[in-house]
């Protein structure tokens, strides 16, 4: 469950321009797409929900937690446990292998590690063969899939995906969307996807247009 109320944000260096965001209200396990033109603040909204940015005004509720009311350490903890982010660009710890990247993500979330889930996830994303390769040895598609795995491995309450399909062909796009939806169901989480990809739209009922 995600709820935002009269959310506003302004970047420090451009005080003149303020983003106004529509109120969002997603019920339990409800998924949503965030659509809008470039520069309208899609990624900003995502980072606000993830607690990476502090809103100028308004509140964000995830489950029963008001993100703004958390202390620094609580926020770190909360982010680690309850938020999974799939970034537009793929980021990893370069010196580690695929498997090690997943393990460190699990470890930092401070949840109990689930080896079965890790193995199954790697299998579903067709990464089993490359699981012991260093991340820089992976292909672009494999990276994108690893990035998705990193976003959902720890069963977060909220999965936030920023253009997860931008580099994928039709077949893989289809696959990724269905996997994300399935994982969201398994984890009982809200899936929020930013996209301008026309292929994604039919898969989701709820569209939030900025």
């Amino acid at each position: 469950m995600i709820r935002t109320t009269s959310l506003r944000f302004a970047y420090q260096n451009t005080k003149t321009h303020t983003f106004y965001f529509p109120d969002i209200d997603l019920s339990f396990e409800q998924n949503a797409l965030i659509l809008g033109n470039s520069g309208i603040g899609k990624t900003t909204l995502l980072h606000l929900i993830a607690g990476l940015l502090i809103p100028k005004k308004g509140n964000i509720f995830i489950g029963n937690t008001c993100v703004q009311e958390l202390t620094r350490n609580q926020l770190n903890n909360f982010r680690g446990k309850q938020i999974g982010i799939i970034f537009q660009r793929t980021y990893f710890i370069k010196s580690l292998t695929l498997l090690e990247n997943l393990k460190i993500r699990e470890k930092l979330s401070k949840k109990t590690t689930d080896q079965q889930r890790r193995i199954r996830l790697i299998e579903q994303l067709e990464l089993t063969e490359v699981r012991n390769k260093k991340v820089y040895e992976l292909s672009e598609g494999q990276r994108q899939r690893l990035s998705i795995a990193l976003g959902i491995i720890h069963k977060p309450k909220v999965i936030l995906a920023d253009e997860p399909t931008s580099n994928l062909d039709d077949k893989n796009c289809e696959k990724v969307i269905s996997l994300l939806k399935k994982e969201a169901r398994i984890c009982k989480s809200n899936l929020v996807i930013i996209t301008h990809d026309q292929r994604v739209k039919p898969h989701f009922d709820k569209h939030i247009i900025l």
Binding site: L52, N76, L108
Partner: peptide, 13 residues
Amino acid sequence: KHELALLRTYGAT
């Protein structure tokens, strides 16, 4: 910085 920022989103302090 990318790796460090990433670790922060993973919940690292």
